[in-house]
Write a protein that binds this DNA or RNA. Sequence first.
DNA 1: TTGCTCCTCACGTCACGTGAGGTGGC
DNA 2: TTGCTCCTCACGTCACGTGAGGTGGC
Lengths: 245, 245
Amino acid sequence: MVCADGMSWSTREIAELAGTSLRAVRHYHEVGLLPEPERRSNGYKKYGVPHLVRLLRIKRLVDLGFSLAQIAETVDDAEHPEHALRTLDAELADTIQRLQRARVELGTLLRRRVPADLPPELTPVTPMSSADRALVLVMTRIMGPRQLRAYGEMIRTLPAHPTDREFDDLPADTGEAARQDLAERMAPRLRLLRAAHPDLDVSHPDAPLGEESAREILATVVRELYNPAQLDVLGRVAALLSRPR
Amino acid sequence: MVCADGMSWSTREIAELAGTSLRAVRHYHEVGLLPEPERRSNGYKKYGVPHLVRLLRIKRLVDLGFSLAQIAETVDDAEHPEHALRTLDAELADTIQRLQRARVELGTLLRRRVPADLPPELTPVTPMSSADRALVLVMTRIMGPRQLRAYGEMIRTLPAHPTDREFDDLPADTGEAARQDLAERMAPRLRLLRAAHPDLDVSHPDAPLGEESAREILATVVRELYNPAQLDVLGRVAALLSRPR
DNA sequence: TTGCTCCTCACGTCACGTGAGGTGGC
DNA sequence: TTGCTCCTCACGTCACGTGAGGTGGC
């Protein structure tokens, strides 16, 4: 490939020289970013110095994070593309923030060894039933930011209580006496929790959906996540809580 | 949409509830991540609570950065997918590093208001000719890390010199006397630069390509970037430098 | 003849976006 | 009849990756 007055390169060679792939070079031809060079008599492409320089310029801008469309606009005017640089910088800053937030969550999930389907700030110290996890997941879309904060605070600080397991494992055909008994043992604790977290009140018009539909959705979800006995207990607890003690 | 025993949602509704797009929901059907719900009599899809919960789970994992293929593998087993979490975390860390490096470069480019086609560590304080810029770009691929460091150090600390512009603007038909004169005025400075940056020596077998091809490529590029008079001056300078003074 | 490199289609990837064209209930 | 929502194809996006099938010089 060495001639008297210089050198020329094959597609593979120029790709390797520039540190990109064969296909990338061809792709830059296809989109018109890099002109096709002359051919040898056998049809092989014959790249020269100008192609190498342009390819290196393209690669540099690609590595910085520019799209090929942006490169096509900026690579030719020698002036300093300040606006493009600032825009890209802002986009990168955004992306980095998103990824870092994700990493913070991943780190918390790994440290606490909890299931990955809930955000850590809504995950209690003690394990949850899958119904409870599903409910929390729905809550993240139903509640407004203020309610969610209160909800998270409650969940994270929730101490284990004997009635938790009892409720989670309640058979669908539990008798009325046992249901009433469980409700009466759950009520005082829930009363305390509500008093400790006043922002939890659903009537705060904080929600993104409006109170009406939020209530409706919540009711539907609860009805499908828990069995009849559990639903009955929840009803009894609500009745106990609505009566001033 | 409210029935006696609960609620069901249209595709648009469930998408909005979950905070994703209509098309995303349909895409999850297509790839088998989300089962299709039953239809109403008119063929409309009728989503229930299980769909909502699954969709929320998918969205959560997508937001964390998992691919749909990974989600398909992990969303079903309730156990803590530690390996997947660690792998993703490492990938995110890598990506963040890359983006941050790009931002550092962008910041330098913006502060120094220099053309974007060169890495800042190889950009001098004084403006360069486009031929010089092209040469530097090629050097980044020809030199090894050690040489590049020396080269960058030299370029960044390079003080302006009257012969710079004179060389850049040298007409192709410059007479011999003027060429010799310019070469003699350039030589002392280049001798000093070489002495100050010993690692610049091309015979360091530091390069990724091997010394032989590096020399060849460099020669070709130089021959195409500068005009005959400039090349002649470079030859005369080299001759002067090779003679001990 | 056997490898090796080069060439040109052309479809695949990933996670959807974006119409096109048609139906159903008010 | 007019809007509105829903439906199903099916092609487009972005920056290439990945063969498939053929040629040319040693």
